[in-house]
Simulated scan of single mutants.
Amino acid sequence: MQSQLKKSYKFAIKTSLYITFFLTLFTSVFLFYLNSLNILAIILFAIICYTFSFFVIQYRVERFIYRRIKKIYDDLTLLESTTLRKQPITTDMATLTKQIDQYAKDKKLEIESLKVREEYRKEFIGNVSHELKTPLFTVQGYISTLIDGGINDKKIREKYLERAEKGVERLIYIVKDLDMITKLEVGDLSLNVDVFDIVNLIEGVFDLLEMKAAKKKITLMFDMDYKEPILVYADRERIQQVLSNLIVNSIKYGREKGTTEVSIENLIKNKVIVRVTDNGEGIAKSNIPRLFERFYRVDKSGSRKEGGSGLGLSIVKHIIEAHDEKIYVESEIGVGSEFSFTLEKAK
């Protein structure tokens, strides 16, 4: 605990000087009138007076300020000010003011952060309940109809069971995505990093999504013919998931008879950037900052008709960030969108 008041020395020195000067002058005048003025006695008196005044003032000021500042520290400790508790108690007013200002700023930021988190939590719970409610009520409706007698009609039974199965599949899809994104956020999902050919992986994703693209007459293509393998260092399965999500989105929101183009470019010496570009409907600039949030949908009305859990882009972002890489998005309404992400090149 700090017991010295360094900056108070200046105060004590000046105050002691004023007291000494006054008392010495007063004593000198008094002795002059008594005709017993002694210079050596006056000097000795001044030294004794100054020394005594300095120590009394210094001690008293320190004790006076220390008691009050300790009360401030104690009050702040009740507010769990860990920053202040780690530091020794200072009786320097400038240092104390700085500490209190920093404490106030930290608390303000903490409160603002808690408000944002609370708002996000409310929105997230609302989104989860909404996403789960639709397929749950759908499945419940089909099953209730079957229980009420529809099961006796073979056509209704088969049709409603198929629809109920699709509703359950959608529920499983949402729960799996939620489980994955939770693991990604807490760092629980381990990455199996290895060297692989990104061109070969993209070709495989094209093959998987060819039928889906054909339904909207969308062409999946490279920007050029990649004759040589492009080797990257990443988790092949997770990067396949990233590409699948991005390409599925480009098909989902793409223009009929449009294109989805993938390009791979050297970014810097040890990095490549993979771009997924479409000529679809595009995304408004106001929506882009929230695009990677869980359950955030650009089109609140129509997007659910297209299916999906609403977690795809959020998962994409977390997978890329788990690789310590970056993901970018550029879009213009009526022109199309481009999602791009970086990967480490294999040496």
Rank of each mutant, 00 (worst) to 15 (best):
F341L: 00
S337V: 10
Y73E: 09
L114P: 03
R117T: 08
K257W: 00
H323T: 00
F124Y: 13
F196Q: 00
E62Q: 12
L84E: 12
A322D: 05
T97V: 08
Y50M: 07
I13A: 12
E281S: 11
A346R: 00
N127Q: 08
I315K: 01
Q87P: 04
V175E: 13
R67N: 12
I147A: 10
L5P: 12
K115Y: 14
K71F: 13
G187N: 03
Q240L: 01
T134P: 05
E169S: 11
R275F: 11
I283R: 07
T51N: 11
F339K: 02
S340A: 11
Y9R: 13
L34G: 12
P135E: 04
T15H: 12
Y18N: 10
Y160D: 10
L136W: 05
V195G: 00
K227P: 05
Y253L: 08
L17E: 03
A12R: 07
M1T: 13
V248S: 10
I264L: 07
T145L: 13
R275T: 10
S113Q: 15
S8H: 07
V186I: 14
G187M: 04
N35R: 11
L209R: 00
I315S: 01
I198R: 00
K216Q: 01
K105C: 04
D92G: 14
K98L: 11
V316T: 07
P88L: 06
F64L: 06
Y18A: 13
L231D: 04
S53M: 03
Q2F: 08
K70S: 15
I39S: 10
I13F: 15
F222A: 03
R60T: 14
Y59A: 13
S53I: 11
Q102G: 09
D106N: 15
T15S: 10
T259L: 02
H323A: 00
L220A: 04
V29C: 11
I251L: 04
E112V: 12
K317N: 01
S113V: 06
Q4S: 13
V274Y: 02
G308I: 07
Y103F: 14
L25A: 14
E306I: 01
S144A: 15
I47R: 01
T277E: 10
Y120N: 15
G141T: 12
A164N: 05
L132A: 10
N38W: 07
E237C: 02
T27D: 08
F26Q: 09
R163H: 14
M224W: 02
H130W: 12
V193L: 05
G187L: 01
V316S: 01
E338Y: 07
D179W: 03
L184Y: 04
